[in-house]
Structure formats: C-alpha cells, structure tokens
C-alpha cells in the first residue's frame, strides 16, 4: 500500500490518529461542558488532519497537505461560530452544562 519508506511507520500515525479520533468521539458523547464538547470536535478534525499529513507523505501526493490547510481554515471559522453560539446560549446561566439546554426534547 505504501510506496515510500518513512522514518516513522505510517501505521503508527494511523494508530495515533485513530486514538485521537476515538478520544474526540468519547469527549462529545460523555463530557457535559459545551467548551469541552467543542474541543473534542476539534480533536476529531485534527485526527483527520494527522491522517491526511501521514498519508500525504506516504503517497508523495501533496493533496493531503492542501486538504489539511483547508480543514484548519474551516475549523477556525467553525470555532468562531461555535463559541459565539455558546456565549449567547449560556451567558444568562451561571454554569454551562449541555444538559441545561433542554427546551427541545428529542
């Protein structure tokens, strides 16, 4: 699968990025603080970034690098909007807990 020799085995990158992704998913599911939820989402995105970089090197194809820049840019915009929404939603409350947002019941 991998045409180039890399000093670190690409599978190691894949394993690390899978671990990061999994931690991110767990964070979104388990943590109740909206800021930590947003951070966990960023972690998931960055796991994908790491994979893109590693595979980009492995395939000698810099599409993965470009993709990563794109993702970082979009993630910044996403964080700006996310934090703005957290501020307007949780400012009236002393503590921020995602369980308090329960006017709409699935």
């Amino acid at each position: 699968m991998v045409p180039v020799q890399m000093s670190v085995d690409p599978n190691a990158y894949a394993a690390l990025s899978a671990l990061m992704f999994f931690i991110g998913v767990l964070g979104v599911v388990l943590r109740r603080n909206p800021l930590i939820t947003l951070m966990s989402i960023e972690l998931m995105w960055n796991a994908a970034n790491l994979s893109f970089m590693a595979y980009s090197r492995a395939w000698l194809n810099n599409a993965g690098h470009i993709f990563t820049f794109l993702v970082i840019t979009v993630a910044a915009a996403e964080a700006a909007i996310g934090l703005a929404i957290v501020v307007i939603l949780f400012r009236p409350r002393a503590q921020s807990n995602v369980d308090d947002a329960m006017l709409l019941k699935g």
């Binding site: 909206p34 994908a48 970034n49 994979s51 709409l104």
Partner: peptide, 26 residues
C-alpha cells in the same frame, strides 16, 4: 438551543466525514 445542538451534532458528523475522507485518501 437549536443552533447549538445543530452545531455540535453536525460538526461531529463533519468529523466523521473528514476522518472517512482521510482513510479513503490513505
């Protein structure tokens, strides 16, 4: 509240999409 829920769930979905894309690229 709808905005926040949509943001969190949809960004998580984007995370899945992106990770899938990374693996497909790999």
């Amino acid at each position: 509240e709808a905005g926040f829920k949509y943001l969190v769930l949809s960004s998580t979905a984007s995370g899945f999409l992106l990770y899938g894309m990374a693996l497909l690229f790999g």
